[in-house]
Nucleic acid binder design. Sequence first.
DNA 1: TCCCGTTTAAAACATACGTTTAGATAAGGT
DNA 2: ACCTTATCTAAACGTATGTTTTAAACGGGA
Lengths: 212, 212
Amino acid sequence: MKTKKHLGQDARERILDVAEELFANGSFASVSVRTVTSKADVNLSAVNYYFGSKQGLFQAVYIRRAALVNNERLHLLHVASDKAQAEGRDASLKELISALLTPPVFWLFDEEKGFSVYIRFLARAYLEDVSDMDNVLKREVYVFEKFIPYFQKIMPKLSEEDIYWRIYFMMGALHHTINHLHRINLLSNDSCKVGSREETRDRVVEFCCKGF
Amino acid sequence: MKTKKHLGQDARERILDVAEELFANGSFASVSVRTVTSKADVNLSAVNYYFGSKQGLFQAVYIRRAALVNNERLHLLHVASDKAQAEGRDASLKELISALLTPPVFWLFDEEKGFSVYIRFLARAYLEDVSDMDNVLKREVYVFEKFIPYFQKIMPKLSEEDIYWRIYFMMGALHHTINHLHRINLLSNDSCKVGSREETRDRVVEFCCKGF
DNA sequence: TCCCGTTTAAAACATACGTTTAGATAAGGT
DNA sequence: ACCTTATCTAAACGTATGTTTTAAACGGGA
């Protein structure tokens, strides 16, 4: 006897998984509640039941994993900082930038954990006004603030404004990588192939290090 | 006596103008044909009459100004190349990158000519599968191909693959600038303001030059 | 066993959508 | 004047949309 019912949290998660995937590949308006619920094998009204509205679902997808990327960034920052301190030096520019870029790039390649989908979802969410991304960004600012002193220490000539601008462009290269990595073949007339996650990470980190 | 009728080309252009603006600010699915036609003050069926379908309209918006950015890039390339030749030197890295980035950045600021809308439209179109952006990109590749020899001449150590990767990241910084420039204030805790188009251009060019 | 809050189900609601159709209107050529 | 062509209009078509409603099914605690 199968017990499909009364697995509320289970159904909720399943909806979030499906919605995350669909929203990662299409715009908010192009994804219908009916597609979500049928792919998640739940009733049509489940979305409204659990999330109130389609927009509520979208925001719930964001919130579920919002902190993870930034926590991992801060973790890598502290690891690099501790290691540097033990060796009697400052954290290098490469270490700082790597701490910012590695989590999203690696997770983009990590099919297993399902984060790659979330990363692409995030990139798209930045363009949707439905998700109130200004408030989303405010959470990211918190992380960048933590990085600023480290940048200033090794690059004392730079003003805070300069550093923010460079972080800004760095995020540009990152988001572009996330969004259009699959098109590098096309753009380069098949000169370039997408390699391993480490190779991709190294390329974008190198680019951003020099840009700084 | 107003002659609203028989202004076919006029109505067509008006539809394109309105659609360009709407598609620049929202996704393909979120913009309805009814919104376009009512804002353009034409009949509902005008879109299907002139463009066959909503998708046809979207592609027509793209095509209308597609060549302009890339033509301007090539023009700037030749200007820089001629000037360099007259001075008995190669075109500098900064000149090359500036030729690639200046047209979209300047037009982004140029409210008057309406290109700023198109630039934002383009950035969003890259995420819509409806516009068959792989074919769109092939047209851009043509332009990059023209630049490759110039890059190779002044940076002979770099392989073609390396150059393409760097152009790729450069486009990332550019597209990010286009998409999220208005959020630089927020990202930087109000440290940064959006300055003139020249200042913005100089910042992204400087970043990309060093990244190369 | 009964009650109660939670969850699932099916149907209906009221719009909004892209597209098609049929016919009116105007302009230009012959 | 007539015919042809391009343009514009209004209405309708069929479908898809997000959401709401109503009721049934279930599990746990009294």
